[in-house]
Each structure stands twice: as structure tokens, then as C-alpha cells.
């Protein structure tokens, strides 16, 4: 018999803890779905409710998420392109197939590396900033202030970021594709003694529209995930400044995890 005086058996404690974690995840999933639904609602019907999403807020977020991230995305992309080229030539040399490196690099950059690396960079840069901003606003009663001013917080805060992410993450991915492929081209043209024109011609010939859409489609999903994970974590803040730090870190970790799992799922569904 269990009684309040006796400690809970260890296995029951484990089951209880598992149940609590599962409930929390299901809760978060439900909250994320509700956020997405509300966001779509405000985008489509906001103006009918006389609460339209402000274009200037979206543009401001696009600057923050996209334009200001260009230097870091460029730097990381060119490095990834160079590394893939070096590794690819080294690996294919054993089979005498180093001339096939262009094909491997083009596909891996466009379908996998560019969307994933861009997503991870944006999760670390903008997802964390969004979670920190939202959690600070929660602590300072700014979200409550919005509500009592009759301003829907999802419409005012989440939708501009979500729209900006849905536009800018694919555009950044496209930029990362170009920069990474050019970075790889710098090494490949030197190592294999082919011209840049030949390299670009081969790359364009190898890549199909489906490959580009595969990568860009994934990055569109990543943009949504980064925003939702940032909002879910930011709005779950408890405590003061320490709480803000905690949810910010958690937002980055959860975003990266969500991106990798989503990537796996999409790859599994689309390329089998």
C-alpha cells in the first residue's frame, strides 16, 4: 500500500516523470499548433478585424533576421563549400573519380548543407533573440499591457517574425547555396585544373529544379519551426533575468533539435 509517509517507489517516480515530460511536450505541440493557426488567422483576416499585421513590423523583422545575418551566413557557407570540396576530392581520389566531386558538392550543398546550416545559424541568432525578447516582455508585464490595450500579442509580435522568417530563411538559404557553391568552385577549379565557367556549367547541369525546391522548401519549414520554438520557450519563462537566460538557451537547443528532426522526416518522406 502506498501511503504519504512512504517514499514513492523508484520505478513509479520514473513513470511519473516520464508522464510529466510527455504532457509538457504535448502541451508545447498543442500551443505551437494553436500559434500557427492564430498567425494564419491574423495574416488572412486581421484587416477585417481592423487589426491588420503591420508591414513596417515585417520589414523591420526581415532586416533583423535576413539582411543583418548575411555576413555570418556568407562566411559559414563559403567555409562549408571549401570543406566539402576538399573532403570530396580527397575521398573520390581513391576511386579515381575526383571529377565527380562537382556533382556531390552541388547536391549536398543545395539539398542538405545550405538549408540546415542556415537554419541552425538563424536559430542561434534570431530564434534566441526572439525568445529573449518575448520572455523579457513577459516578465515586464509588456504582454499583459498589449492585451489590455486590445492588441493581440500573436498578431503584434509573433506574426511579423513568422512572416519574416518564412521569407528570409529561404532567401538566405538561396544565398548560402550560391556562396557555398562558389567557395567549393574556388578549390575545385584549382585542384582539378578546370575553369570556373566549366565548373558553373557542370553545377547547373547537375542540379534540377526539384533539388533547389527541396532545399528551399525545407528552409521554409525551418523558418516556421524557429519562430514557434522561440515563442513557446519565450512565453514559458518563470523567474527574472535568470529565467530569460534559461529559456534563451533552451530555445536554441530545441530549435536545432526541431530542425534536425524535421530535416530527417522531410528527407525520409521525399527521397526514399
Amino acid at each position: 500500500m502506498l501511503s504519504p509517509d512512504r517514499p514513492f517507489p523508484l520505478f513509479l517516480q520514473k513513470i511519473e516523470s516520464l508522464g510529466r515530460i510527455s504532457t509538457k511536450w504535448v502541451n508545447s505541440l498543442g500551443f505551437g499548433t494553436s500559434l500557427l493557426y492564430q498567425s494564419v488567422f491574423w495574416i488572412c483576416w486581421g484587416s477585417r478585424r481592423k487589426q491588420q499585421v503591420r508591414l513596417e513590423a515585417i520589414v523591420s523583422q526581415m532586416m533583423e533576421v535576413g539582411i543583418l545575418a548575411l555576413p555570418i551566413v556568407s562566411l559559414v557557407s563559403i567555409t562549408i563549400g571549401l570543406m566539402l570540396a576538399i573532403q570530396g576530392i580527397d575521398a573520390l581520389k581513391d576511386f579515381g573519380a575526383e571529377h565527380q566531386v562537382t556533382y556531390g558538392v552541388a547536391l549536398s550543398v543545395v539539398r542538405e548543407f545550405a538549408p540546415l546550416i542556415t537554419g541552425i545559424l538563424i536559430a542561434g541568432r534570431s530564434g534566441s533573440a526572439f525568445a529573449a525578447r518575448l520572455s523579457t516582455m513577459m516578465i515586464n508585464n509588456e504582454i499583459d499591457a498589449l492585451r489590455v490595450m486590445g492588441i493581440n500579442p500573436v498578431r503584434f509580435l509573433v506574426v511579423p517574425s513568422l512572416v519574416a522568417m518564412m521569407i528570409m530563411v529561404p532567401l538566405l538559404t538561396l544565398w548560402a547555396d550560391i556562396v557555398a557553391l562558389l567557395g567549393a568552385g574556388l578549390y575545385i577549379t584549382t585542384a582539378l585544373g578546370i575553369s570556373m565557367g566549366t565548373y558553373i556549367g557542370q553545377t547547373i547541369a547537375y542540379l534540377g529544379t526539384a533539388d533547389a525546391l527541396h532545399g528551399l522548401g525545407k528552409s521554409f519549414v525551418f523558418g516556421i519551426l524557429i519562430t514557434l520554438v522561440g515563442v513557446i520557450n519565450g512565453s514559458s519563462v518563470t523567474g527574472g533575468a535568470e529565467g530569460v537566460g534559461h529559456v534563451t538557451t533552451r530555445a536554441v537547443v530545441h530549435s536545432i533539435l526541431a530542425l534536425i528532426l524535421a530535416d530527417l522526416l522531410i528527407v525520409f518522406l521525399l527521397t526514399r
Binding site: R133, N140, N141, E142
Partner: peptide, 9 residues
């Protein structure tokens, strides 16, 4: 609000 709750941005 007690804290003012002005938007810091």
C-alpha cells in the same frame, strides 16, 4: 501597471 510595462524597444 506597477512596473510601467513600457515597451523597451
Amino acid at each position: 501597471f506597477q512596473s510601467g510595462a513600457l515597451f523597451s524597444s
